[in-house]
Design a protein around this nucleic acid. Structure first.
Lengths: 161, 161
DNA sequence: ACTGAAAGACGTCGAAT
DNA sequence: ATTCGACGTCTTTCAGT
């Protein structure tokens, strides 16, 4: 399946929003099932979903895996500052971070730190290895402060719409 | 006594891992396409995927939406401490937080704070409203410190396996 | 455990209201 | 903008190896 990137803004009606809400929780719903839930037939629902894909409201469809079962049960948030804030140093940092697969999310943030990283590894030993051998290899990091996740209270991949 | 296969640990071979890696990036791949990539016919691939679903390695299938387009473009990380750390207060906090739809993730963390929340709202005005009228209504919050996301460097929903 | 084939369901799209 | 109908493809299962 291929999506054509089209950044136009669409006027979403209530049915579009309901379709998005359902699909972001379970994308295995068939067009038929979706149609039944919004009281329409399959064709308009099919076309609406395609429209939402083409317009970029739906970016992609993915399987959500169980991190614990796959031995990536330790999540760490790492606050990072850079030694300097030149464009070159920032760009290099971004490039380095993107290539580290343990870093599943990275944001440029306000406040005392420059970047916030979400890292997933097997356990504390693996995290130590990550810090020493991977994060340690990234240039121009001024400081890095780790916060460990002890328990997951809520993690809905769904956007509140 | 009979064991139901749900949630048991399985021995995953290389092909299982490759299937998981592909599906967590694009779950719209057909059994046929997956089969071609791992050089098998459809039947074993179909059965492997079903096995991975039943065993809980695949938790669900979802559509990933574009937060910006859906007017939830402001992401905020909020560090929260509780006034006291009794079980009752903790449980009540968890219950309250789970019901706030703007809070898309919530973790119990180590360090200076007790909880880390990831919040998605439209803009700063909406965040102010969230803090005043929603987070403000949650009992026993000692302090709350907000960190604003200025830019997203990386966000792969994929677990590094 | 895998291959190949076969039945049924679904996605997909054109024509029509 | 929705319904109907038809085609191709995918899912799902069942023999056979």
């Amino acid at each position: 399946m291929r999506f054509i990137e089209n950044n136009s803004a669409l006027a979403l009606d209530d049915i579009d929003l309901r379709l998005l809400r359902m699909l972001q929780v379970n994308s295995n719903l068939t067009t038929k099932e979706l149609a039944a839930k919004v009281n329409l037939s399959t064709t308009p629902v099919f076309e609406r979903v395609k429209k939402l894909e083409k317009a970029g409201y739906i970016k992609n469809y993915i399987a959500v895996l169980d991190a614990e079962k796959l031995n990536k049960g330790l999540m760490v948030f790492c606050n990072v500052t850079l030694k300097a804030h030149t464009r070159a140093i920032g760009n290099q940092f971004v490039k380095d971070i993107v290539s580290l697969e343990e870093v599943v999310e990275c944001y440029n943030i306000s406040g005392d730190y420059d970047f916030l990283l979400k890292i997933m590894v097997k356990d504390m030993k693996a995290y130590q290895n990550f810090v020493l051998n991977h994060l340690g290899g990234v240039k121009n990091i001024g400081s890095a402060q780790s916060t460990f996740v002890m328990g997951e209270i809520k993690n809905s991949y769904a956007i509140p719409i």
